[in-house]
């Protein structure tokens, strides 16, 4: 009995030491997260409840909901709704184009997969704004796209869609390929051995395995496109105001409270979406 208690005590001590060392190892990450994410976010939330002198930009931390009330006015509701629709359209396009591409890449041999991933990522080596300016030149009246295809897309919705998809598809493809890459190759052979055709394998094996990658890619593209303003401004002509352009134009100045309120609400919405997605995923995994 006494020996058993002694063993248990030793094990608990070891576990406690391991827990302490794990906590110690997590300290730098926690500190970084605190300094780079949590504290700035708290500043943003505090700023959303403040007032800014439009002349001197002095901040009066008034703890007022004024910015939130303003955000709910028809003008900004319209801006929010349009930005959400714009982000959703971008996500749908990236999923529609990026998923087949990722599936195809994941089925390649190691060597060709690497080559294809480098090709997918290659445009990202060029500065984002420069790439969008390049599209502007290509799509302009008398430019190569009009000359070859006879279409005039600059400052039209197709130009924005093109700019968004070319900018964000690589960010979608990468996690999907990574997710599929981790799947054991035997499962595809097993599906074939059990008589599943290509479509059945796609629906019952491949896509479920890619689910986490698709969710990650969707999240990344959704978050980034929600705040995007360079593409709509340069390729869409900047005719409509989006959350991104509002934040970029005035977020650092006289509209800091409004920008703070918009950011807070967007973050909470995204966090809620992520939480719901995680819960749904857990439920599916439990049923499986």
């Amino acid at each position: 009995m006494g020996r058993r208690v002694g063993r248990l005590r030793r094990r608990l001590t070891r576990l406690g030491t391991e827990g302490a060392s794990q906590r110690f190892l997590a300290l730098p990450d926690t500190a970084l997260l605190l300094v780079a994410v949590v504290i700035p976010l708290l500043f943003v939330v505090a700023r959303s409840l403040a007032q800014v002198d439009p002349v001197t930009l002095e901040v009066n931390q008034a703890w007022t909901w004024e910015a939130y009330r303003r955000m709910l006015s028809p003008v900004y509701r319209e801006v929010l709704a349009r930005s959400a629709a714009f982000a959703a359209a971008t996500v749908v396009l990236c999923v529609a184009i990026g998923t087949p591409a990722a599936l195809a890449i994941s089925r390649l041999s190691e060597r060709w997969r690497t080559v294809m991933l480098v090709i997918v990522l290659l445009p990202s080596f060029v500065n984002f704004t420069v790439r969008i300016f390049a599209w502007q030149g290509l799509l302009a009246n008398g430019g190569p796209v009009q000359t070859v295809f006879g279409v005039r897309w600059l400052y039209q919705p197709p130009a924005v869609a093109l700019g968004m998809v070319t900018a964000y598809v690589p960010l979608y493809v990468l996690p999907v390929v990574a997710g599929l890459h981790r799947a054991p190759p035997d499962v595809f052979d097993a599906a074939a051995d059990l008589g599943a055709g290509p479509w059945r394998t796609l629906w019952r094996v491949t896509l479920p395995l890619a689910r986490v990658g698709i969710a990650t890619g969707t999240g990344v593209v959704g978050v980034l496109s929600l705040g995007e303003f360079v593409v709509p401004t340069l390729l869409g002509g900047g005719r409509v105001m989006l959350v991104g352009s509002l934040l970029a134009e005035r977020g650092a100045g006289r509209d800091q409270p409004l920008a703070g309120a918009l950011t807070t609400v967007l973050l909470l919405t995204l966090a809620l979406g992520a939480a719901l997605l995680t819960m749904a995923r857990r439920r599916v995994m439990r049923h499986e």
Binding site: G142, R152, L154, Y155, G237, G238, R239
Partner: peptide, 20 residues
């Protein structure tokens, strides 16, 4: 005016020069 606008941009001179 809004429905008739092609662009609200900092580069309108270029758009006119190209004929957009």
């Amino acid at each position: 005016l809004k429905p008739h606008l092609l662009a609200v941009s900092g580069e309108v001179g270029k758009a006119v020069a190209t004929g957009d």
